[in-house]
C-alpha cells in the first residue's frame, strides 16, 4: 500500500471518530452522570489500530481531541487537558493489550479503561481525590460494559472488512 493511501484512510477514520464524538454529544444521556459516554468514537481508533498500526491509532486518538477542542472552543482549556491525558492513557493501554495478545473486545475494554483512568488521575489531582474516588467504581464498571460493547461492534466490523477486502 502506498503511503498516501494510508494518509487517506487515517484521515477518513479521524473524521469518522470526530463525527461519532459529535453525535454522542447530541444524544441525551441515560447514565447517572452525563460525563460518562459510551465512546463510539473509540471504534475508528480501534479500527486504525487493527488495520494499520498503533502509531496511526495514536494519531487518530490525539488528533480527534485536538480538532474537537478547536471546533468546540476548549483548546488548551482544562477540559482539553483532561481529554488529552485520557487519550494518551488509552493508547498506552492499547499498547499493553498488544503485548499481552488480548482479543479485540478485551483491547477495547482496556482502551476504555485507560481513557477513564487518565481522566480519573487528572480529576483527582485537580478537583480532589475524594471526588475522583467516589466515581472510581462507576468508572471501572462503565469501562467494562461500554468497552466490551464497543469491542464487539469493532470485532464485527473487522470481520466484515476482512471479507470485503
Amino acid at each position: 500500500m502506498i503511503k498516501s493511501k494510508y494518509v487517506v484512510v487515517i484521515g477518513a477514520l479521524l473524521a469518522l471518530s470526530m463525527i461519532f464524538g459529535y453525535i454522542e454529544m447530541l444524544l441525551p444521556s441515560f447514565l447517572p452522570n452525563p460525563a460518562f459516554k459510551i465512546g463510539f468514537s473509540q471504534i475508528p481508533i480501534l479500527l486504525t489500530f487493527y488495520l494499520i498500526n498503533l502509531k496511526s491509532s495514536a494519531t487518530v486518538s490525539i488528533g480527534k481531541v485536538l480538532l474537537m477542542s478547536l471546533l468546540f472552543g476548549y483548546f488548551l482549556n482544562y477540559l482539553f487537558f483532561v481529554n488529552i491525558i485520557g487519550a494518551i492513557f488509552s493508547i498506552f493501554f492499547i499498547w499493553l493489550s498488544k503485548q499481552l495478545k488480548f482479543s479485540v473486545p478485551m483491547t477495547s475494554l482496556m482502551s476504555s479503561l485507560g481513557h477513564n483512568l487518565g481522566q480519573f488521575i487528572v480529576i483527582g489531582y485537580t478537583l480532589g481525590w475524594s471526588i475522583a474516588l467516589f466515581y472510581l467504581p462507576l468508572i471501572i464498571v462503565f469501562s467494562i460494559i461500554f468497552g466490551l460493547i464497543i469491542g464487539f461492534i469493532s470485532k464485527i466490523l473487522l470481520i466484515k472488512i476482512e471479507k470485503r477486502f
Partner: peptide
C-alpha cells in the same frame, strides 16, 4: 488494500 490478518478475535478465559 491488504490489511494485516487479525488472529485473536474471541474473548478467552
Amino acid at each position: 488494500m491488504n490489511f494485516p490478518k487479525i488472529t485473536n478475535i474471541r474473548v478467552n478465559k
